[in-house]
C-alpha cells in the first residue's frame, strides 16, 4: 500500500542536499525526482513535475522557502520545511504548530515527518495542502513591511520592488499590479485586505475598496461628484476615492 511518493529537494547547499538524499534513500519509499539549488528552480520544478512532497530549505538567497510557498499558492504540494537554526523562522513555525525539520536532520525525525505526510494523504486524498498564509505572515511580521512583491505566471517568477508599483486594483480573487516600468501590469493571486496589511502604510493608501495607491505617484486630488473625488496619478490614471479612503489619505498626507 506504500507506493513511492515523488519528492523534490530544495537547498542551496549541495552538501545539505546530499545529506538529505542519503537519509531518504536509506528510509526508502521516496522517489527523488529533482534537486533544486534555489527558489526559482523550485517553483519551476514544482510547476512542471507536480511532486507529492517537497523538502524545502528556508534560508536561500533571493527567494527563500517562504517565498517559494507564497509563489506556488494553490499549487503547493505537501511541504516539509527544513531549516537551519534561525530564531525567527523557528518562532514562526512554533507559533503555527507546524512540523519542520531542523538541520542536521535526524533520521528518526525525518521518518516521523514522512509518516505523517503518508497518513494525511491516505485519510483525505483530496485535501489541499495546508494553507501557509498565516505562517508566512507571521514570519514577515517580524521582518517589517513588505519591500517587494512576488509574482508568478507558470514557471516565471517576477520580483517587483514596491517602489516600482503605482497602484493595485482588485479583480475578484486577484490583484492587478500596475508598475511604472514600461507601463507593465501583473496579476497576483491575493486579496486586497491581506495585501493592505502587509504594505507599509506610510507609502501606500487604500483609497477605495478596489484600489491601493503608492503615495509617491499621486499627483493631485480632484473633486468629482458632491462627495466623491478622483486621484490623478503621475501616469495620468484617474482612480476614484471613496469617502473613507479620502479620510485615510488625508491622515497620511
Amino acid at each position: 500500500m506504500n507506493e513511492a511518493m515523488t519528492a523534490i529537494i530544495v537547498d542551496d547547499e549541495a552538501l545539505a542536499r546530499e545529506s538529505l538524499k542519503g537519509a531518504l534513500e536509506s528510509i526508502g519509499g521516496i522517489d527523488i525526482i529533482r534537486e533544486c539549488s534555489n527558489g526559482f528552480e523550485a517553483v519551476q520544478a514544482v510547476h512542471e513535475l507536480t511532486p507529492d512532497l517537497v523538502f524545502l530549505d528556508i534560508q536561500m538567497p533571493r527567494l527563500d522557502g517562504f517565498d517559494v510557498v507564497e509563489l506556488l499558492g494553490k499549487e503547493t504540494p505537501f511541504i516539509i520545511f527544513v531549516t537551519s537554526y534561525d530564531e525567527y523562522a523557528l518562532r514562526a513555525f512554533e507559533a503555527e504548530a507546524l512540523d519542520y525539520l531542523l538541520k542536521p536532520v535526524k533520521p528518526e525525525r525525518l521518518l516521523k515527518a514522512i509518516d505523517r505526510v503518508r497518513r494525511v494523504r491516505e485519510q483525505v486524498q483530496a485535501e489541499v495542502a495546508r494553507p501557509f498564509e498565516t505562517l508566512i505572515d507571521r514570519h514577515r511580521d517580524s521582518l517589517g513591511p513588505l519591500n517587494r512583491v512576488l509574482i508568478r505566471s507558470g514557471t516565471d517568477v517576477v520580483i517587483l520592488p514596491v517602489g516600482d508599483i503605482i497602484y493595485f486594483e482588485a479583480q475578484d480573487d486577484y490583484v492587478r499590479i500596475y508598475t511604472h516600468k514600461e507601463g507593465k501590469s501583473y496579476l497576483k493571486n491575493e486579496r486586497m485586505t491581506h495585501l493592505e496589511k502587509l504594505l507599509d502604510l506610510r507609502n501606500f493608501c487604500r483609497i477605495h475598496r478596489s484600489y491601493i495607491i503608492n503615495i509617491a505617484f499621486l499627483k493631485k486630488i480632484e473633486p468629482y461628484t458632491k462627495d466623491s473625488r478622483l486621484a490623478i496619478l503621475q501616469g495620468g490614471q484617474k482612480l476614484p476615492i471613496s469617502r473613507s479612503g479620502y479620510t485615510r489619505l488625508m491622515e497620511l498626507l
Partner: peptide, 8 residues
Amino acid sequence: NLLGPLMR
C-alpha cells in the same frame, strides 16, 4: 554539520 555528509 558539514562533517556528517562529508564523511560519507
